[in-house]
């Protein structure tokens, strides 16, 4: 793929006190590509995500979206550049119905005060189209508070898609979902991303999901990028194996101790 990169991350770092949460991370993403970011807990994935999404200010380094430097922009300015995102713990509007959640996205897109119109009847068809796309059309009138968590996660995706994004940031989109649901959700995401040429950056712990849908993946450990490439190459990477399976030092020592005592 030689298209111009949609997202360019250059030398991104962030420290909290003495802890280097993210150190010198660089990568890029082209339209229509699914890029997975994996790594053990505490590797800095969410920090990375929140810096790209504007929820946390970057310590140093640069994030460009469509060639534009977005450092210092707020989440809502980044959203206006066409970035949709989902959160690790789903964030939706619990007091609204499913359709109203999506309508709220449209309500926020309109300029002006928004005092005069009636939001309940505005953008109804568009909202339903988005829900249909995500397979939730039947739930449109349900109170959001009654939904199963997996459906809430899907709703979040619908809200992110409602803005016609160029870039989707999905922080553990499948966490808390049933196994079959996960595969289905990521399959759907992948299809929509291809059709609409949306670049998707996602983190995930479920390797089946990652290997089934990622075009490319990168591995983060202790804030550093330790591997990047096609899934089959990363799978063979010794450093990645060490991080995920452990280096076996403890077992070796235990075995050595047993041998010595025997």
């Amino acid at each position: 793929m030689s298209a111009a990169p949609l997202l360019q991350v250059e030398h991104l770092s962030k420290s909290y006190g003495g802890v280097h949460a993210v150190q010198d991370v660089s990568f890029s993403l082209v339209p229509g590509e699914m890029l997975a970011m994996i790594g053990p807990n505490g590797a800095g994935k969410s920090t990375c995500f929140n810096m790209v999404g504007g929820q946390i200010p970057a310590g140093s380094g640069r994030v460009r979206i469509d060639g534009r430097d977005v450092s210092g922009l707020s989440p809502r300015q980044i959203w206006r550049l066409g970035v949709g995102r989902t959160f690790q713990v789903a964030q939706v509007f619990k007091s609204m119905t499913v359709r109203e959640n999506v309508q709220a996205v449209f309500a926020s897109r309109e300029s002006g005060w928004g005092f005069l119109a009636r939001a309940g009847s505005a953008h109804r068809t568009e909202a339903e189209a988005v829900l249909h796309l995500i397979g939730m059309a039947d739930f449109a009138d349900r109170p959001c508070a009654d939904m199963a968590y997996g459906d809430v996660k899907r709703l979040e995706l619908a809200m992110a898609l409602a803005n016609d994004p160029k870039l989707l940031l999905m922080d553990e989109p499948a966490a808390g979902m049933a196994p079959l649901e996960r595969v289905e959700l990521m399959g759907l995401t992948a299809r929509i991303a291809k059709e609409r040429q949306i670049g998707v950056l996602f983190t995930e712990h479920d390797m089946d999901v990652v290997f089934a849908h990622a075009d490319r993946m990168m591995v983060l450990n202790r804030g550093r990028l330790i591997a990047e490439g096609r899934p089959e190459d990363v799978r063979q990477d010794t450093q990645v194996r060490a991080v995920y399976l452990g280096e076996g030092l403890v077992y070796d020592q235990a075995a050595a101790a047993r041998r010595a005592s025997a």
Binding site: V92, A104, S108, A119
Partner: peptide, 26 residues
């Protein structure tokens, strides 16, 4: 009327989840 206007939706959105509201441009 304001509660059910686009402004009212934004306001309720902020009340329910500020993080989500900011992430959809409110």
């Amino acid at each position: 009327h304001l509660v059910f206007s686009p402004f009212g939706y934004r306001l309720r959105a902020v009340r329910d989840s500020t993080v989500r509201a900011e992430a959809i441009g409110i």
